[in-house]
């Protein structure tokens, strides 16, 4: 473990910047989001979660797939340096592991390289994740429903705890351990520090909501496809994409060309299953024309379909969608409603 004085963080970040492009929570207007920083002074040491998720670092809202012109196609390349992300909470670190199953591992199609996403891989492979303990979970947090914990280290290369005056860094993965061993300026940690961390963890955990057992959710979802509950849940949804855009795990996208004449680029853009045009076909036929069908798709994708394909839920309980929904369609309440729902056809679960 390495102990760094907060006042000396910049030295560490500069050391990190020698090998990495560093992203960190920073002010973007009135909100906090992950962006590329030039010095430690830009880091926002937010006590709460960032408003926008870090998925943007690896899966940007808009990304050039290639440029085209008379000279042919040109694929953008990444700069030499790999990406390091400072200040990620475990809900976000977990989300990257989920997204990597979709983009990186091509889990469903293991033998074929064509199912791996080169744009994701060139950023995600070789990245260094600083997973920072979440000292003060918000009232909208529910990571503990998904086996998460504010002090969990899963997915971290380096685990960071903010103890007030210091950051205490612990190498978790081989990559993280190797990197930390190269940094010589830190102090040794003491028993006092470890006690402090234990205390912080205890306090953080006390802020979490009561755990809801979500294991039965998958099976329950299988049985309620045709039930009126979806109309009840979706009635107030206005089908904007706020929830899906702030979500660290939502990953639907659109591919679109921009250009004039023979010059231009093909880009991919975040898209949302909430939008009416998402599935509309050129013929006018729309398999998910009703708002109810779209809300069901979003919820089912998170708590049923993804489980079917990747053996886990596509949600980390970060609570961002709960915070931004303009009509307070609270996904925690949806989960509870589904779990409590009594089937109308007397089907036994």
């Amino acid at each position: 473990m390495v102990k760094i004085k907060k006042t000396e963080l910049n030295e560490f970040i500069e050391f990190l910047m020698k090998d990495y492009d560093v992203y960190s929570p920073a002010d973007v207007g009135k909100k906090a989001a992950f962006k590329k920083i030039k010095s430690a002074f830009e880091i926002k040491h937010a006590i709460t979660n960032t408003h926008l998720s870090p998925k943007d670092v690896f899966f940007p809202q808009s990304e050039v797939l290639f440029q085209y012109s008379d000279d042919g196609l040109k694929v953008p390349k990444r700069e030499e340096k790999a990406i390091a992300v400072w200040g990620m909470r475990n809900c976000d670190t977990s989300s990257l592991l989920m997204l990597n199953k979709v983009f990186g591992d091509a889990h469903q199609m293991p033998d074929k390289d064509m199912y791996k996403d080169p744009y994701w891989k060139m950023k995600y492979d070789n990245c260094l994740i600083f997973n920072q303990a979440c000292n003060e979970p918000l009232s909208t947090c529910f990571c503990n429903w998904f086996e998460g914990n504010p002090f969990a280290k899963k997915g971290a290369d380096i685990f960071v705890v903010d103890t007030g005056d210091h950051f205490i860094l612990e190498g978790i993965s081989d990559k993280g351990k190797t990197f930390l061993s190269k940094y010589k300026a830190g102090e040794e940690t003491t028993k006092v520090d470890l006690n402090k961390i234990a205390k912080l963890k205890e306090t953080a955990e006390s802020y979490l909501p009561d755990v809801v057992d979500i294991k039965p959710l998958f099976n329950k979802m299988n049985k309620i496809w045709d039930e009126p509950i979806w109309e009840e849940i979706s009635a107030k949804c206005i089908n904007c994409g706020a929830c899906t855009f702030v979500c660290p795990t939502c990953h639907c996208f659109d591919v679109s060309d921009e250009g004039k004449g023979k010059k231009g680029q093909r880009i991919r853009l975040w898209d949302s299953c909430m939008f009416q045009i998402f599935t509309r076909e050129a013929s006018g036929h729309n398999p998910r024309g009703l708002s109810t069908q779209r809300v069901r798709q979003r919820i089912m994708h998170k708590y049923n379909y993804f489980m079917d394909n990747y053996e886990q839920y596509l949600c980390t309980g970060c609570g961002r969608c709960v915070q931004v929904c303009p009509v307070n369609l609270d996904i925690r309440e949806v989960i509870k409603k589904v779990l409590d729902y009594k089937l109308s056809k007397n089907e036994e679960i």
Partner: peptide
């Protein structure tokens, strides 16, 4: 420019 550079095109403004 600064203000609208933050827009994430979620269309919440339009839909509400």
């Amino acid at each position: 420019q600064e203000e609208y550079s933050k827009c994430i095109r979620c269309y919440a403004c339009r839909n509400i």
